[in-house]
Amino acid sequence: MNWKALEHVPLLLYVLAAKTLILCLAFAAAKMYQRRQLDAKQQKLGAEKKAPVVKKES
C-alpha cells in the first residue's frame, strides 16, 4: 500500500469541504435572488390591482 498517498488525505478532505460549502452558499444565494424577484413581481401586481384605473375620455 502506498503510505505516501495517505499523507495528502487531510488536505483533500479540506478541499472537498470547501468546495461543498461554496456550492451550498451559491445555491442559497441563487434561491434568495429568485425569491426577491418573485416578491418584487408580486408587489408590482398587487400595486396595480389596488390602484384605481383612470381612463382618459376624449
Rank of each mutant, 00 (worst) to 15 (best):
Y14W: 15
L13I: 13
A18Y: 03
V53Q: 11
S58C: 02
H8F: 12
A26R: 13
K56I: 10
P52T: 12
A5R: 14
E48T: 02
A47C: 02
V54I: 15
K50P: 00
L21F: 07
V54P: 00
V9W: 09
L45K: 04
V54K: 11
K4A: 12
L38N: 03
A47T: 08
L16C: 08
K41N: 04
A28R: 09
P52A: 04
V53Y: 05
A5C: 00
A40V: 07
R35Y: 04
P10T: 04
C24M: 09
K31I: 11
K44E: 08
Y33F: 05
K55S: 04
V53H: 06
T20Q: 04
E57V: 09
L25W: 07
K55D: 01
T20E: 05
T20K: 01
D39L: 15
L23T: 05
L6W: 13
K50W: 02
L16Q: 02
A18E: 01
Q43W: 04
L45S: 00
A5I: 13
N2Y: 07
H8I: 15
E48D: 03
Q34H: 03
G46T: 08
A40S: 05
K31C: 05
C24F: 05
N2A: 09
Q34K: 12
L13F: 13
M1P: 02
L21K: 05
Y14K: 08
L12K: 12
E48G: 01
Y14P: 01
K4M: 11
F27V: 08
N2T: 10
L38R: 13
A47V: 06
E48R: 10
S58W: 13
A26K: 12
A29E: 03
F27K: 11
L16K: 05
P52Q: 00
F27R: 14
L45Q: 10
H8P: 01
Q42D: 00
M1Y: 11
L6E: 14
K56L: 12
T20S: 06
E57D: 05
K44P: 00
F27Q: 14
H8C: 07
L6S: 14
M32K: 14
Q37T: 03
L25H: 04
E57F: 04
F27M: 14
P10R: 03
E57N: 12
K31T: 10
V53N: 03
L11Q: 11
Q34L: 07
K50D: 10
A51H: 02
P10Y: 03
N2V: 02
K41G: 00
F27W: 14
L11R: 04
L6I: 15
L11H: 05
K55F: 03
H8K: 14
K19A: 15
Y33R: 07
Q34R: 09
A30G: 06
M32D: 10
H8G: 11
K55Q: 08
L12M: 12
A47P: 01
